[in-house]
Design a protein around this nucleic acid. Structure first.
Ligand SMILES: [Zn+2]
Ligand SMILES: [Zn+2]
Ligand SMILES: [Zn+2]
Ligand SMILES: [Zn+2]
Lengths: 133, 133
DNA sequence: TTACATACTGTTATATTATAACAATTCTAA
DNA sequence: TTAGAATTGTTATAATATAACAGTATGTAA
């Protein structure tokens, strides 16, 4: 069997799937990923979902919840901060990860009245991008 | 056929499904809703999803994207503002709609560097609620 | 009233997204 | 080198959501 690619902490399947997502200009869905990696020997949904779960867990990719799709992280500190924000065009469906220190700090320090302490948040903005409006 | 319940703007199926969600202490999933309204003559997924779509559209309920589940709106202005925020306990899964004017204003006036103007946002906070920590 | 448009309903089938379960292999660290 | 942890491969199935089409109810305006 091929050696695992531990020099960068990703296993073989994780690396294949990360590379695909990272190269993609748009969010990729799990089954789109599956179709695109079958030539690399990844044949079944669980193989894809397991790699996706791990990549999300370590902050290399994020799930766009409203689209059931995945994008590569464009920031350096998502793994640590667990603070994600995206802008989503409702027309062309372009998604951008927002990296705004003030926004991130504001939300990370937000305290709920009911005494809940937050560990993580996900924010999705919707509108029309420059091109589409 | 029964008269539509237009006195409050909801159709028969919409009213049945809204009442169920509104009474529920926790977010409800579409198929849980389906099982619970079959005695009222709603038999198939499209009937549920159509009512859910409409109720979301008019702001009577919200979808918790990370859970594929629906809650009744607890605010008065969600229909207008299209600004939703939730706190979600990762242990007991309790979900609360956050109604914080400052937060809502801050996010509603947030402008993306790339020139996108937002019409709507959804924010989900995760952590441990008072009871669970 | 009639006729039309719009919204809603009922139904069957199917598409899409995600996980359970289990056996085998590979990696890591002691 | 060996045991535990992580990863992989595989089959089957669960859970979530929509397509398509025919029919019914409602509001509006001639
Ligand atoms: Zn990121
Ligand atoms: Zn666009
Ligand atoms: Zn609301
Ligand atoms: Zn809790």
């Amino acid at each position: 069997m091929t050696r695992m690619h531990k020099e960068n902490n990703l296993s073989k399947n994780q690396q294949i799937i990360f590379d695909l997502i990272d190269k993609s200009p748009e969010p990729l869905k799990a089954y789109t990923i599956l179709y695109n990696v079958q030539k690399k020997g990844i044949n079944a949904p669980p193989q894809v979902y397991r790699a996706l779960d791990k990549l999300v867990e370590i902050g290399k990719i994020h799930k766009i919840e409203s689209k059931n799709a995945f994008v590569a992280c464009k920031n350096s500190d998502c793994e640590i901060s667990k603070a994600t924000a995206f802008s989503i065009c409702e027309s062309c469906e372009v998604v951008d990860e927002i990296s705004d220190v003030k926004l991130s700090k504001y939300l990370s320090s937000f305290n709920h009245k009911k005494g809940m302490k937050f560990k993580r948040f996900n924010l999705e903005f919707f509108g029309l991008c420059k091109k589409c409006k």
